[in-house]
């Protein structure tokens, strides 16, 4: 007896299978509806509300939000005190990005080209764990390090280098009473917290440089430093740009670090936080938050042109 060519349908599961098979688009829509509904309503909806709010203004007498379209709130961003905040944030973001790139390079370079076997795993975990481990704990650790009575002061006393530390702290603008209340301290914490975001894409870009290409450069008579300058650095650049997207964006939006370390100078993130909280000026907070969005959109489109997304 031969088996039938078509097997019988067994229950609801088979019927649903047949339905999805005949209507693959319905199946796709069924998969996509819950997440898209969530992201569309919760996230995009919120972003849209934010955009809308930025075109409202606050009534100076009652302190209430006036739901009428105006560009007045955006104009307020250009007031010197507010514009300073934006400028300061951008400068800090640029400095942090640069600092991360310089410090990350040796780690990424070593991990990509020399670490083998066990060391490869050590480097991988060694970079990934700080990336994921608690942000707040990391910031807190640096508050301990930078405190006036903390480990750095102790170390400089122990090594008789207090004079150097004091000289650094005496620098105009970036110096301060102690490291934990200076721009230098803030810069250090930012670099520490965001550097894994720079190392990983940099390492990925460097790993893609074929060894044969370096040998070819060597073969053509380039010295080690020439090879480095003319071959390795240009090829690592997309990775640096990719990493800089993170370090720049994260620094620009952060408001915890400037609150805990530094001289209480205002940053965009802090301004947004304070304006929506105590001041209750949501329109201005919304307008402030449009700044990082616009800057990041420009940054992303430039980075895309530079081919940085291939390094992600």
């Amino acid at each position: 007896m031969t088996a039938p060519a078509i097997l019988p349908e067994r229950g609801l599961a088979d019927r649903l299978t047949a339905f999805f098979w005949r209507h693959p688009k319905t199946f796709l829509a069924l998969l996509l509806t819950p997440p898209l509904l969530w992201l569309g309503v919760v996230y995009l909806g919120s972003l849209f509300t934010l955009l809308l709010q930025s075109f409202y203004s606050i009534d100076e007498f009652s302190g209430m939000v006036k739901p009428e379209f105006t560009l007045k709130t955006y104009a307020e961003l250009l007031r010197p005190s507010n514009f300073d905040v934006i400028l300061r944030t951008l400068l800090m973001s640029a400095a942090v990005t640069l600092g991360c790139a310089v410090l990350a390079f040796p780690i990424a370079y070593y991990a990509a080209r020399f670490a083998r076997g066990r060391w490869k795993a050590v480097f991988y975990l060694g970079i990934m764990l700080p990336l994921w481990s608690s942000y707040l704990v990391k910031v807190y650790a640096w508050k301990l390090i930078l405190a006036k009575e903390g480990i750095i002061t102790w170390a400089s006393e122990a090594t008789h280098t207090t004079a150097i530390l004091n000289a650094v702290l005496a620098l105009p603008v970036i110096g301060g009473n102690s490291l934990s209340t200076s721009y230098i301290g803030m810069f250090l914490v930012f670099v520490y917290v965001w550097i894994p975001y720079m190392i990983l894409p940099m390492q990925a870009a460097l790993e893609r440089v074929p060894t044969s290409m370096l040998e070819a450069s060597q073969d053509l008579g380039a010295s080690r430093s020439q090879t480095f300058r003319t071959v390795i650095l240009p090829l690592a650049l997309p990775g640096v740009i990719a990493g800089s997207i993170f370090t720049f964006s994260l620094t620009m939006g952060d408001y915890i670090i400037p609150q805990i370390v530094g001289n209480s100078a205002n940053f965009i993130g802090m301004a947004v936080y304070q304006l929506q909280g105590t001041a209750g000026n949501i329109p201005l907070a919304a307008a402030f938050s449009m700044v990082p969005i616009v800057i990041m959109l420009i940054y992303l489109s430039l980075a895309k042109r530079a081919g940085a997304f291939d390094a992600l």
């Binding site: 898209l36 996230y43 509300t49 939006g253 947004v272 929506q276 949501i282 919304a286 990082p292 969005i293």
Partner: peptide
């Protein structure tokens, strides 16, 4: 869609925060 999924971590957290805050408001 892939952009939409990545957006909540591509934009600074403060943006996501203030957006939700203003929407709740």
């Amino acid at each position: 869609i892939s952009l939409l999924i990545i957006l909540p971590i591509a934009l600074p957290g403060v943006i996501t925060g203030i957006s939700l805050r203003s929407a709740f408001g």
